[in-house]
């Protein structure tokens, strides 16, 4: 369970998040909203990469603490950028992170198969197209089979095949005890498999609810 209480983030004079209260349970939650609604900011705060001006985030029962290595081990995050080293190949990038997380030796090949990027293993990350970089970024986030997955616009620049590969990879990752948040401004793809959804508008939660039978609705899906 991820909870936020009165989460506020301010950039200069712009209030990016304005007192966000959220409870995100197990399963996959779609985070929807237009550009500039605060989705990326919220994900960065939940990943511990951005310190809010006020409010707090708890993971389970404990306050989020990026200095806690156990928390970092549980977290998979793919932001706007690929998070890869452009001069290394896709395989070298994933092998590096695989080693740092202590993943099984075949983790790189397995995840590349899953996002259908195995044929690009020896391509330099900097030479990939924007869509292939997104797939590689998602592969890196999923590599160590995290308990918490935060994906920011994973479908950006993807064609239908690429999008289907990402969806399949997320679907195969999900399971008991796992919490994923997928932020996107185009809700259609995520709604197809999300358990819940949150709509952000100008830094505030306008709608939050479950897609599960019996769950609180309030979502247009």
């Amino acid at each position: 369970m991820i909870e936020t209480r009165a989460l506020t983030v301010v950039y200069g004079r712009t209030v990016a998040l304005d007192g966000i209260d959220l409870s995100i349970g197990e399963g996959i939650t779609g985070l929807f909203g237009q550009n500039g609604s605060g989705k990326s900011t919220l994900l960065r705060v939940l990943a511990g990469l951005l310190r809010p001006r006020s409010g707090m985030v708890t993971i389970g029962d404990a306050p989020l603490d990026l200095r806690d290595e156990r928390f970092r081990r549980r977290l998979g995050y793919a932001g706007h950028d690929s998070g890869l080293y452009p001069h290394l190949t896709v395989g070298e990038n994933l092998d590096l992170f695989s080693s740092l997380y202590g993943c099984p030796e075949d983790a790189t090949d397995t995840i590349l198969e899953r996002v259908r990027l195995a044929d690009r293993k020896d391509a330099r990350a900097g030479e990939l197209s924007a869509g292939l970089k997104r797939r590689a970024a998602v592969a890196r986030a999923l590599l160590h089979d995290p308990d918490i997955l935060l994906l920011d616009e994973p479908y950006a620049n993807l064609d239908d095949d690429g999008a289907a590969a990402i969806t399949a990879a997320i679907e195969s990752w999900r399971g008991p005890g796992k919490t994923g948040i997928v932020a996107t401004h185009g809700a259609k793809r995520v709604k197809a498999y999300a358990d819940a959804g949150v709509i952000l508008t100008r830094g505030t939660v306008t709608v939050a609810g479950s897609y599960r039978p019996g769950g609180k609705r309030g979502l247009d899906g």
Binding site: L66, E69, D81, S82, L84, Y85, L100, Y101
Partner: peptide
């Protein structure tokens, strides 16, 4: 420089390794 090109600094900060 190499961490900033594609946002790899975020990936690095999330690695379970003491700063």
């Amino acid at each position: 420089e190499t961490e900033q090109a594609e946002g790899a600094i975020d990936s690095l900060l999330l690695v379970p390794l003491d700063r």
